[in-house]
Design a protein around this nucleic acid. Structure first.
Length: 496
RNA sequence: UCCUCGGUAGCUCAAUGGUAGAGCAUGCGGCUGUUAACCGCAGGGUUGUAGGUUCGAGUCCUACCCGGGGAGCCA
């Protein structure tokens, strides 16, 4: 029996195998929160209702000790899940000594060093389950629409994105690279199977230390023959709507535990605003944007002064309080300090963001701050399309109505989560592509097989890439992408 | 690579240049309905590293190492 299925068996006696998450007790009574991977449940151990060995076992268990609990399932509305176990027997696999991750707060460095244990905690549990649900949605979405799942090679000879972000490895004496994208091979398969999608890891040697970057992450890249840019955007829109609605439907408990504001996810409904790059630049230049920045600054200043007042009040009353209450105040003070640091950082950044938006020049690529400011204008994901060709990859088709533009599109998630999808319509003309490869100083011969796609039955086609971890971070409302993957690989982190 | 903040007990954090502390965790004791339980007692430290200033350095200065946040770049 697993904890997630207990609710259907109220009144029955069951045996659960798991780990001790937490224990409280008083004379002759223990409350043990048992974790088995599927959920948590409180087990009550009453000295009068168990044998002596079981009582000793219960007494000696520590955090993360592995054990077997037998007992009756009782309804108890006060508890998590509305049930608790009245234990009749406790057996032990192992008594643990000094489990490093205590129920109190920890710093991120410590937690990352103990990621192999941290994954047992509540928060990672919820996130990984949402990730799993999202992966299922992705496969269901494409499979239901007749897409063929394909695996692109991870070792390649070609750069797809910028060459500076390639991981180079020795391949029997010559150099090879870890793939940055499965797209070129996806195009091959689209010409063979019409509609395909890849789902695999990609690698980028970006020396980025931000909340949105990993060096190894998972990408989903559909590629469709006979799709133009508009069809591509519609597919991407349907795709995100499906992911969000499945998560809302099936991940109540997890999203609740993460404190996710579901209203933002419920608003992921068609149509997503579609704005051209040029309009987006105008929006950045608008007074409206400046007003928004100003409003944000004022809000933060308000929050800051509220926190300051609370802190002062706490300190004034401090002397007269009972010991346990003092500790609460101490803990709260730490929380306040952390939040104030965040606010100060944002208050330092926001004026710069406003300035950089104001001075943004047509032709450049949006920075993280520009994306964030753009999304502030809308209540759901937005699609920005028709970028200047100079900021997009060599394989993008040009806009027939304006040669300066590429038929690319990005989808920006709201609430500052930024770009989660990038894609577009592919160049289908051989001569144009050959010129582009030359212009970008890419090795012509490495792309010969790719050019063959334009020699033998070229057709209009499109596709996009979705970053899985960014999507998980968005759906879960995570501040940092490192929590969206079990074992994040980042600048300076290769273990565990 | 640049900017910025930080590194003090196992963990989270305190400490006007002047005797290094608290909570949690751990150990022992108490408490029969706890929800980050509570109460009492105990053990626990080369203040990131190497120099320097000073009567005196956790605190000031220099260099380096490690980490957080941000910029650039991107999904």
């Amino acid at each position: 029996m697993t904890i997630d299925s207990l609710v259907q068996h109220i009144g029955e006696t069951v045996t659960l195998k798991g780990w001790l998450h937490q224990k409280r007790g008083s004379k002759g009574l223990f409350f043990m929160v048992l974790r088995d991977g599927t959920g948590m449940v409180q087990c009550v151990v009453n000295q009068g209702k168990v044998d002596a060995t079981s009582w000793d076992n219960a007494s000696s268990t520590t955090q993360e000790s592995s054990l077997i609990v037998t007992g009756e399932i009782l309804k108890d509305e006060r508890q998590i899940g509305g049930i608790e176990i009245q234990a009749s027997q406790i057996e032990v696999f192992q008594i643990v000594k000094d489990y490093p991750i205590t129920p109190k707060s920890h710093g991120i460095d410590f937690l990352m060093d103990h990621r192999h244990l941290w994954l047992r905690s509540r928060r990672p549990w919820a996130i990984m389950r949402v990730r799993n649900r999202i992966i299922m949605s992705i496969h269901n979405f494409f499979q239901e629409r007749g897409f063929l799942q394909m695996d692109a090679p991870l070792l390649t000879k070609n750069a797809v994105e910028g060459t500076s972000t390639l991981f180079e490895i020795d391949y029997f004496g010559s150099s090879a690279y870890l793939t940055q994208s499965g797209q070129l091979h996806g195009e091959v398969m689209a010409m063979a199977f019409n509609k395909i999608y890849t789902f695999g890891p990609v690698f980028r040697a970006e020396k980025s230390k931000t909340r949105r970057h990993l060096t190894e992450f998972w990408m989903i890249e559909p590629e469709m023959a006979f799709y133009d840019l508009d069809m591509n955007m519609t597919l991407a829109e349907d795709f995100l709507i499906r992911i969000a609605s499945d998560a809302i439907e099936d991940c109540h408990e997890e999203l609740d535990l993460l404190g996710r504001d579901l209203d933002w996810l419920r608003r992921v409904q068609p149509p997503f605003p579609r704005i051209t790059y040029t309009d987006a630049v105008e929006l950045l230049h608008s007074d409206q944007t400046q007003v928004m920045v100003q409003k944000h600054i004022e809000q933060l200043q308000q929050e800051r002064s509220d926190l300051e007042q609370e802190r002062t009040a706490n300190r004034q009353n401090y002397g007269q309080l009972k010991e346990w209450k003092k500790r609460r105040i101490d803990a709260r003070e730490i929380e306040i300090n952390i939040r104030m640091d965040q606010i100060d950082e944002e208050l330092r950044n926001l004026p710069q963001w406003g300035k950089s938006a104001e001075q943004f020049e047509w032709g450049g690529d949006f920075g993280g701050s520009d994306e964030t400011l753009l999304t502030w204008h809308f209540d759901r994901p937005i699609i920005v399309h028709r970028y200047p060709e100079s900021v997009k990859a060599f394989y993008m088709k040009r806009d027939p109505e304006d040669d300066r533009l590429a038929l690319g599109m990005d989808i920006l998630a709201p609430e500052g989560f930024g770009e989660i999808i990038g894609g577009g319509q592919r160049a289908d003309d051989l001569t144009f592509l050959e010129e582009q490869v030359q212009r970008h100083r890419l090795p012509q011969d490495a792309f010969e097989w790719y050019f063959d796609l334009r020699r033998y039955g070229t057709v209009p086609h499109s596709g996009f890439g979705l970053g899985l971890e960014r999507t998980v971070a968005w759906i879960c409302g995570l501040e940092h992408i490192r929590e969206a993957i079990p074992f994040p690989r980042m600048l300076g982190r290769l273990s565990p």
